[in-house]
């Protein structure tokens, strides 16, 4: 592996890397790793990489005067991981190691917008956590429906959980709401929890406090395409 990579090897590496970009952008897999707006830039870059690799086939000249560093072989690692491991979107492993994080951006909307009318209100988990920190933010006595995956804690409690993402899966934050009054489903299963806010829980975000709901109904749910909020 110590040899500098020749032009044929370089074309090969560029082609498979381009193929990974194309595949991840073409299928819904991009949603596991990056934000939605990255899809088209990723697709275009994949095309450009494959195109660049093709120029070496079309070129009539002997081009082996450009060997590159053998570190280039490392690029096969993301290729292998994308095709063999196909790692899933992040879930309980990350979320159980974090507490609710304070992100003013997520809180601004919750502070401005009043809760919509209706019997049962669908809320994002991060929005519910944000409202709870505002002394309830109008949640008192209102039935809400939260969709997320299941995480556990060491004391036997369980949480309906979502991760939020800014650019890519390296910068996720976790938002958890404890569920009271229902049996804990298996970790990482997706559920829809209907319930009401337990008065006074989760109003101190500085301490990483977690709000709770008393569940009236817990139903299994399909994982959404965009698992990040």
């Amino acid at each position: 592996m110590g040899d500098p990579v020749n032009r044929a090897g370089q074309s090969m590496v560029l082609t498979v890397l381009g193929a990974v970009a194309l595949r991840i952008a073409w299928t819904d897999e991009y949603a596991r790793y990056v934000n939605a707006w990255m899809r088209w830039p990723l697709f275009v870059s994949g095309l450009l990489l494959v195109g660049l690799a093709l120029t070496s086939l079309l070129s009539s000249k002997e081009n082996d005067d450009h060997p590159t560093t053998h570190v280039a072989w490392l690029l096969l690692l993301p290729v292998a991981i994308a095709f063999v491991v196909q790692p899933p979107a992040l879930g309980s492993y990350v979320a159980e190691r974090r507490s609710n994080e304070v992100a003013p951006a997520a809180y601004e909307e919750a502070a401005v917008a009043p809760l919509p009318e209706g019997d049962v209100i669908d809320l994002p988990v991060s929005g519910f956590v944000a409202r709870a920190t505002m002394e309830g933010g109008g949640l008192e006595g209102r039935p809400v429906r939260l969709t997320g995956f299941v995480t556990h804690d060491k004391q036997g409690g369980w949480y309906v959980t979502r991760l939020t993402m800014f650019c890519c899966a390296a910068d996720v934050s976790a938002f958890k709401v404890r569920v009271d009054g229902a049996e804990a489903p298996a970790k990482d299963t997706w559920v829809r929890v209907t319930g009401t806010w337990v008065d006074g829980t989760g109003i101190d975000p500085e301490a990483g406090a977690t709000p709770a709901v008393t569940a009236s109904e817990v139903t299994p749910s399909k994982a959404p395409t965009f698992t990040y909020e």
């Binding site: 991009y30 990056v34 990255m38 991981i81 491991v85 890519c168 899966a169």
Partner: peptide
Amino acid sequence: SAFQTWATVFLAVVVQSIPFLV
């Protein structure tokens, strides 16, 4: 889980930077 989480984050960083690198 630990390996899969590493793989997701690793691939995410690489995938995220490909368009910027291009």
